[in-house]
């Protein structure tokens, strides 16, 4: 037990600092991926809500593929696919070796694409939950479409979207561990490195689990606070 404390200490020879730093990378990776996913999700949701066939079909295909295929496979596609393309471009400029994609950017993109597919469903459902009278009132008052979305619809839509977004965020945080397979030193990869070099896998993976749990718990309460705030002044069941 004292061994474990020594290994995980923040001082000299301890891995605590490295693990905390890696937890920071995990957090940054998740946040940026989640925000990128919000963009993809919003675009896909508006496609899914469109009465036209092509956007609605594209949105549906995007959702079906990236929610149905293992996330690991998507990560391999982006990393290897991107690196192979980059290597080909490198050859044109006379570089001979394999050019790897930057792992952090690839991770953000992968999480963005995957979580966007989930977020699209959340936004679509939340949009449909907004009272149709609100749209009609905007039209009756002559509010421009962009303004009615920004000032009236989206604030109300977020009330319905927040619980679902909270679930997607938890999914994103846990998915970020998979980015370790392409070599990005986030919390999972740093624990693997520590476990290998100290020959103490149990201590390191337990510490990683605890840190993931902590991040999930703290950020979860931020979402709950946001929910209370979004509903302030409203009576709801």
């Amino acid at each position: 037990m004292t061994d474990a404390l020594h290994i995980l200490s923040l001082g000299k020879g301890g891995w605590g600092g490295a693990l905390l730093l890696a937890a920071g990378v995990t957090f940054a990776l998740s946040i940026l991926g989640f925000l990128l996913g919000a963009f993809f999700g919003a675009v896909a949701a508006s496609g899914g809500l469109s009465p036209r066939a092509v956007p609605s079909w594209l949105a549906k295909a995007y959702g079906t593929v990236f929610r149905g295929v293992p996330d690991l496979l998507t990560i391999y596609l982006l990393y290897y696919g991107g690196s192979i393309a980059l290597t080909e471009i490198g050859k044109l400029f006379g570089s001979a070796g394999f050019v790897g994609l930057p792992t952090f950017a690839t991770g953000v993109l992968a999480i963005g694409i995957i979580s966007g597919a989930y977020q699209a469903e959340v936004y679509r459902g939340a949009y449909l939950a907004v009272d149709p009278g609100q749209f009609e009132a905007c039209k009756a008052l002559g509010v421009a479409r962009f303004h009615s979305l920004r000032l009236v619809i989206i604030p109300q839509l977020m009330r319905h979207a927040l619980p679902g977004l909270g679930n997607v965020w938890q999914l994103v945080l846990k998915d970020s561990a998979l980015i370790s397979v392409i070599g990005l030193v986030e919390l999972m990869r740093q624990s693997q490195i520590g476990a290998g070099s100290m020959r103490e896998p149990f201590v390191f993976y337990l510490a990683a689990a605890a840190l993931y749990f902590l991040i999930a718990a703290v950020t979860g309460s931020v979402f709950r606070y946001g929910e209370t705030r979004a509903w302030r002044g409203m009576v709801h069941a």
Binding site: Q170, S180, M188, S191, P201, F202, Y205, L206, A209
Partner: peptide
């Protein structure tokens, strides 16, 4: 529910192997 599945697999396979 609060920790990644990958950590759980590693904890059981490598961790308990200790």
């Amino acid at each position: 529910r609060g920790t990644p599945l990958l950590v759980q697999i590693f904890l059981i396979y490598y961790g308990l192997g200790q």
